[in-house]
């Protein structure tokens, strides 16, 4: 049986850059779903302080992370000497995605790794789906 990804939620507590309604809705839906998950107050702060808890967060197998931009999340972990597994992490972006999209992806047991590898340019961004 394939490994079920763990869930990690970042509350981005020390800034207003993640819409409050999105992060609140994501957290509430995770609680309502009754699933196990880890939640951290602020990945930036943990990275800046090189909190060893970040090592634990990446060392337990594949993980889905509700936070912000994948490029930022990748290098926040790397800066704390806790690099994300390239093929074992999926980052959902609460700055631009809806709570519904994020929770659907988090609760889906499949993993779609999207941690950037190499230079990230505009061509790497998800392209809008053409109307049919």
């Amino acid at each position: 049986m394939a490994e079920v990804p763990r869930i990690l939620y970042c509350h981005c507590a020390y800034a207003q850059v993640v819409p409050a309604e999105v992060k609140t809705a994501v957290l509430r839906k995770l609680c309502d779903a009754g699933v196990a998950f880890d939640a951290v107050p602020d990945l930036c702060e943990m990275s800046a302080r090189q909190d060893p808890n970040l090592q634990n967060l990446v060392s337990g197998g594949c993980v889905k992370i509700a936070a912000c931009y994948p490029r930022a999340v990748k290098w926040l972990f790397a800066a704390a000497k806790a690099p994300l597994p390239p093929d074992g992490a999926e980052v959902l972006n609460m700055r631009v995605q809806t709570a519904e999209e994020i929770v659907t992806a988090l609760l889906n047991t499949g993993l779609q790794p999207n941690v950037p590898q190499g230079k990230v340019t505009a061509e790497d961004a998800p392209q809008p789906v053409a109307a049919t």
Binding site: H11, A36, A39, P41
Partner: peptide
Amino acid sequence: FDATTALLEKGFSVTQAKPGQTVSPIGSA
């Protein structure tokens, strides 16, 4: 939800543990 929100706002990490489900390892924290 209320407890988790309050704890996160205070700067604590929170793990919601469920039987049979996986969260990150505990380590030395």
